[in-house]
Simulated assay, not measured.
Amino acid sequence: MVELVAAVAALVATGGSLWAAGAAAVVAYVATCWWWPFAFCACCRGKGKHFRKDGRAFRDCGWCAGRGRRFRVGAVVLARARNGRSD
């Protein structure tokens, strides 16, 4: 992680500001995926359940299996890279 920050700082120092901004965004996204790999489920809005219009009956969300959160795309890529999977 320190090496990436040093590389971004070197790019900024040489005048590659657009590349540095993109690299900084990627580093920030990867760091947040490592720190917090979950995001709220967009299907159930983080509730984990789907309710009827009257609010009484419910069923578990099929996308997140009732947890209300899902793995972020970056977290899945990091996990596959860490475990050596390429499928």
Rank of each mutant, 00 (worst) to 15 (best):
G66T: 03
C64S: 11
S86W: 12
V12F: 14
G66F: 00
C43S: 13
A75V: 00
S17R: 15
A24V: 02
A57R: 12
G22L: 11
G55Q: 01
A25F: 09
G22S: 12
V73W: 10
F58N: 08
R45G: 06
G15R: 04
W36T: 12
L78A: 05
R85H: 08
L11Y: 08
G48Y: 05
A20F: 01
W19P: 11
K53M: 10
A81M: 13
A7S: 08
L78N: 04
A6E: 04
T14L: 08
V26D: 11
V12Y: 13
V2T: 09
F38Y: 14
A42Y: 09
V30A: 14
G16L: 07
G48A: 09
R85C: 00
C44H: 00
T32C: 05
C41N: 09
R69D: 05
A25R: 15
V5W: 01
Y29L: 13
V30P: 06
V12G: 14
R52K: 11
C44P: 14
D54W: 01
G62P: 11
G15Q: 02
A65Y: 13
N83P: 00
R67I: 02
W35C: 10
F40Q: 11
V5P: 03
S86E: 07
A23W: 03
V27I: 04
M1R: 15
M1L: 05
W35I: 10
D54Y: 02
S17M: 02
R56Y: 04
C61I: 01
A25K: 15
G66L: 06
R85S: 07
A13L: 08
V77F: 05
A21G: 13
V2S: 07
E3F: 03
G16Q: 09
V26G: 13
K47M: 14
W36R: 15
T32S: 07
A57E: 12
A9G: 02
A7V: 02
A7L: 06
A81S: 09
K49Y: 15
A7E: 04
C33Y: 03
R69F: 12
G22T: 08
A75S: 06
W19L: 14
A6I: 01
A24F: 02
K49E: 13
R59K: 13
A31C: 07
W63Q: 15
A65H: 14
A57G: 03
V76F: 01
A20H: 05
C44I: 00
K47W: 11
